[in-house]
Simulated scan of single mutants.
Amino acid sequence: MAKNRLNDHAGPSQRQLRVGELIRRTLSDVLGRGDIHDPELNRMSVTVGEVRVSPDLKIATAYVLPLGGKGADLLIDLLARNKSELRRAVSKQLTLKFAPDLRFRLDETFDRLDDTRRLFSQDNVRRDLDD
């Protein structure tokens, strides 16, 4: 019992990381090839940056971004609309007992990187780092 409480605050397990990466690759391949029967979605270039999987492997949250960053809200709507077809494509590639429920979120990693670079370029921060 105590071991379980300790693991609640730990990062994702190796299995979660492995399954998340397999889902990320599969989604990237499917979206890149245009295997989905939605012409609107097939016209968009999508970057799947990361997939985080719940501990029970039943929920997978994919962090996506359209090429160029334009049309992000439309992309999330299109992916949600085609979620069942994407889930079916993922389940064909994985050998899990259950196909995970897919959720799509906007990947804000690049925005945070830009904010960090901007902060480091400020004079007072550079002065503190140089000391």
Rank of each mutant, 00 (worst) to 15 (best):
K3C: 08
N7A: 09
N7G: 05
D8V: 10
D8H: 08
A10N: 13
A10R: 15
P12R: 08
S13V: 06
S13A: 10
Q14F: 10
Q14E: 10
R15T: 00
Q16F: 02
Q16P: 06
L17I: 04
R18Y: 06
G20L: 04
G20Q: 05
G20W: 04
G20Y: 01
E21Y: 00
I23C: 00
R24L: 06
R24K: 04
R25S: 14
T26W: 05
T26P: 04
L27M: 03
L27P: 00
S28W: 05
S28P: 05
D29C: 10
G32I: 01
G32E: 04
R33I: 02
G34D: 09
D35G: 07
I36W: 07
H37D: 06
D38K: 11
P39D: 14
P39E: 11
E40R: 06
L41E: 06
R43F: 04
S45L: 08
S45P: 02
S45R: 11
V46N: 10
V46K: 03
T47F: 10
V48A: 13
G49K: 00
V51F: 01
D56P: 08
I59H: 14
I59Q: 07
T61P: 01
A62I: 00
Y63Q: 09
V64L: 12
L65D: 03
P66E: 02
G68R: 01
G69V: 02
G71N: 06
D73G: 13
D73I: 02
L74D: 13
L74Y: 11
I76G: 09
D77Q: 15
L78E: 10
L78Y: 02
L79E: 04
A80N: 15
N82L: 09
E85H: 03
L86V: 07
L86R: 01
L86C: 02
R87L: 07
R88C: 08
V90A: 05
S91T: 11
K92T: 09
Q93M: 02
Q93N: 14
L94F: 07
L94A: 02
T95L: 09
L96G: 01
K97V: 12
K97L: 14
A99Q: 00
A99R: 08
P100E: 12
P100D: 11
D101F: 05
E108R: 12
F110K: 13
F110L: 13
D111Q: 06
R112L: 13
T116M: 12
T116P: 00
T116A: 13
T116W: 10
S121Y: 10
S121P: 07
Q122K: 14
D123A: 15
D123S: 13
N124C: 12
V125G: 11
V125I: 05
R126D: 06
R126P: 03
R127Y: 11
R127S: 12
R127G: 09
R127Q: 12
R127I: 09
L129M: 04
D130I: 07
D130F: 08
D130E: 15
D130N: 15
D131K: 12
